[in-house]
Design a protein around this nucleic acid. Sequence first.
DNA 1: AAGTATGTTCCTCAGAGCGGAACTCTTCAC
DNA 2: GTGAAGAGTTCCGCTCTGAGGAACATACTT
Lengths: 257, 257
Amino acid sequence: MANAPNERTGRRIQSVEIAFTILDAVRKNDRPSITELADELGHSKSTIYSHLQTLESEEIIVREDDGYRLSLQVLDMANDVRNQVANYDVIVDAVDELANETGEIAQFGIEEHGQVSYLYKARGNQAVETASRAGGKQPIYSTSLGKSILAFLPPDRQEEIVSETTFERKTPKTITDPARLYTELEEIAERGYAIDDEENIEGLRCVATPVRNGTSVVGAVSVTGPASRITDDYLHGELAESVQRAANVIELNTKFS
Amino acid sequence: MANAPNERTGRRIQSVEIAFTILDAVRKNDRPSITELADELGHSKSTIYSHLQTLESEEIIVREDDGYRLSLQVLDMANDVRNQVANYDVIVDAVDELANETGEIAQFGIEEHGQVSYLYKARGNQAVETASRAGGKQPIYSTSLGKSILAFLPPDRQEEIVSETTFERKTPKTITDPARLYTELEEIAERGYAIDDEENIEGLRCVATPVRNGTSVVGAVSVTGPASRITDDYLHGELAESVQRAANVIELNTKFS
DNA sequence: AAGTATGTTCCTCAGAGCGGAACTCTTCAC
DNA sequence: GTGAAGAGTTCCGCTCTGAGGAACATACTT
């Protein structure tokens, strides 16, 4: 809708693309019917029909009286994902602990397709409400998680991501200039942690540190709180330390393959 | 592997089936490579290649240095599923409460493709360990959840499911005879709750009641515990009541569309 | 420097998959 | 109770997609 991602090389398989378009529509519309989907997606009823049949026989969707919906197999897949990405239990423990310790929101995220995806989110007892949730995505350049990951990625990958990114201003403070981003990434690499000073959401500041496996970055941990509580001193002092400690705990407790 | 499900009517779309076969392999193998997948699935490298390209551009899988894995978008889908199926928050609250109250495992499940799928599981403070988890599936005839749902399904749907089911003996007490199942379903319909007396896993007994929306069944709640603690009196008395209370809470707090 | 593994591209032909239209079956209006 | 409207399902034919083989590129091994 907003971005035209990688056109890349290699052939796309049309029917598979159609299938996922349908899946997406089933996700977003509430129990759509065949005709509904055919209209919305601009395909013939017969096309949609065979696709739905296929998806149902794959047990990825379920047909009910009032329309199609996703099946719980997706939850099963979600379990697998959590453990493929990282040692999920270790991350949950560390992030929970960080949230309790600070009272704020603590999160773990990784880079995917040039964006940050959240793997886990925990809320401390005075945490503000935010829309982010596990599985959600945010720009890499406007979040502390994103920048901290980016800063420690190999240069070629770093450039690849930046070059494929279209910068959108999310707040007055959002970085929208690649050059500006690169200089900040250098700072981050030196300092060891990244901050987000109301660059993604107004009123919110974050600190994040990368979680590494040897030299490569696997993800990052962050704390998010209201600008009113997160003063400069606190952010660069105690909070940065807490976040780094959490990242260390994850690194140590994770047995990377 | 064990069962040949519905051959049904309607055309299947081959390339979509291949795509999901690949997805499945990506789930189960640890970061497989293209060649690995080509060998395992018996397709040419070029076929696998274009499929992986497609799946990656759909952002459903991610390519990393050491192979492909599922993307966190799956977690996002999981969020959608939870709320499509039912009012997830209401269920979580009620099931947690039930687990605390009894100290055992409490679960909520629904029927999908003739089986029981778990939507949510909570563990009380003396709960035994079981392999079941959200997204997992179990036979409908050997679980209290399954039987309680089945008992309240419309007769035609009930028969459809039973006729498509192949009964496998899971313990000495498992029901493997349709006739036997039907008579038990009648009992359940009268009594209002179903039990599983070590029919699915030896040493475990369960009680379950359906959760209904008007006349139609949306799912069921259950409690599972070791046979040693779950005596006949307790099971048919206090425990059955607790489970029914939980089901009621869910029914009342859920605003069905 | 040759050898082995991978990922990538090219090409071709069979047949898969899309759309259109016909056919059921149910639901509603009156 | 009858007709119309809408849903889902089936059928069919033509086009062009997608599967596979093989050649090419690239990265590691030894």
